[in-house]
Design a protein around this nucleic acid. Structure first.
Lengths: 201, 201
DNA sequence: CGCTATAAGTTAACGTTGTTAACACAGAGA
DNA sequence: TCTCTGTGTTAACAACGTTAACTTATAGCG
């Protein structure tokens, strides 16, 4: 009986429609402008329908980000990085930042929005991507290139620095930067300085 | 005619009441929970009254943060810092982070909330505090301790790194941190690594 | 086949929110 | 005394997330 399968396919189809319509709004206009009613309008269903596929608005956006962050995980693929452990870390930081700048709204929702109701699932690609950082720091340490022993702490330090640069650049438009416009290579500088700060001698 | 002066004093008084009531809500419950109606209830006026003192909700919160960030500027007072330019930078970063952790909601609103309608005034204490960083980096460079010449870029790099650590710590609760809980000294580590990354030799 | 439970969709509403129009009223200045 | 300005009110608007109540199709079962 392929009927239930067809039903499931149809259900999957509208879930897709919802996600794609929401992503369109989310990418161009941000979280606040993604309203259940606008998403519903876009797919020509009633707002209530969305609640048959997603628990609430946060659940919808979470699912949307889950998909997009899968692309981050791909972009951080260690296989595409150079051999030298330090140069690898550098490319990792740049790839991470590149994703964030290309998907600022997703990035904000994943890494900048406090959650009490719906914490991120631990196996979300956003979380997993930290695992990649961690592993690459461990490699650099194994190669004797890092000054410290605490791999987790060093990985978090690197993450914090790149995260900070990304946040500044995505929050302020250049003319809104305090005092002076952002250095055009602020991201690269931050990646470089934070890695250099962890190097042995 | 002290009448107009009394009027102005009274106007100032209720402005104070609004700000204090809003701050109470803002500090303990965050931006979303500061509603015009709750603020109005707290001071026993109608919601509309607030609009005679502030343009809109963002204007109110902006004024509130303006006051609080004056305290940041005090906390960054160079006179209270040690003599050695690098040690000064370190203490500056720690003081900055301390303020952010003590006033997370204000910090978010000032440095993490994109603005189109009401950009920060350029003379706001939040902006001015970047000037302090800039000056201290300039001093360190004048002392020949930094590897680079671009003072603005270096100041922004340091800012970005500390900002990132602060954002992580204030966004995620410890048990929500990806993979591993945050290193207890993540802030210090980030300050140290980022400064070390800018040092000469 | 006929009955029923379920899933998927709808309309209409509730309780919020920020904000504003319309109005009341006190009092300063002409 | 009249009028204008400032300060406050009530009542409403439009938009939001969400949900209760209802319809309708249909899969599964006797």
């Amino acid at each position: 009986m392929g009927i239930t399968e067809r039903r499931e396919r149809e259900k999957e189809e509208i879930r897709r429609k919802i996600l794609d319509a929401a992503r369109e709004l989310f990418m161009t206009e941000g979280y606040d402008k993604v309203t259940m009613r606008r998403v519903a309008d876009a797919i020509e269903y009633s707002p209530t329908t969305i609640y048959h596929h997603f628990e609430d608005k946060d659940d919808l956006v979470e699912a949307l980000c889950h998909e997009d962050f899968a692309k981050l995980l791909q972009a951080l693929d260690p296989a595409q990085m150079p051999a030298d452990p330090i140069e690898r870390l550098r490319q990792l930081g740049l790839a991470y930042a590149r994703f964030a700048l290309q998907n600022p709204n997703q990035y904000r929702f994943m890494f900048l929005t406090p959650r009490e109701e719906h914490p991120h699932p631990e196996d979300s690609p956003g979380y997993q991507s930290f695992g990649v950082v961690r592993q690459m720091v461990a490699d650099a340490k194994a190669a004797g290139r890092l000054r410290d022993d605490d791999v987790d702490a060093m990985a978090q330090t690197l993450w914090a620095c790149v995260h900070g640069a990304v946040c500044l650049v995505t929050t302020f438009r250049p003319e809104q930067f305090p005092c002076v416009p952002p250095a055009p290579d602020l991201i690269e500088r931050t990646v470089d300085a934070s890695i250099r700060g962890l190097l042995k001698e």
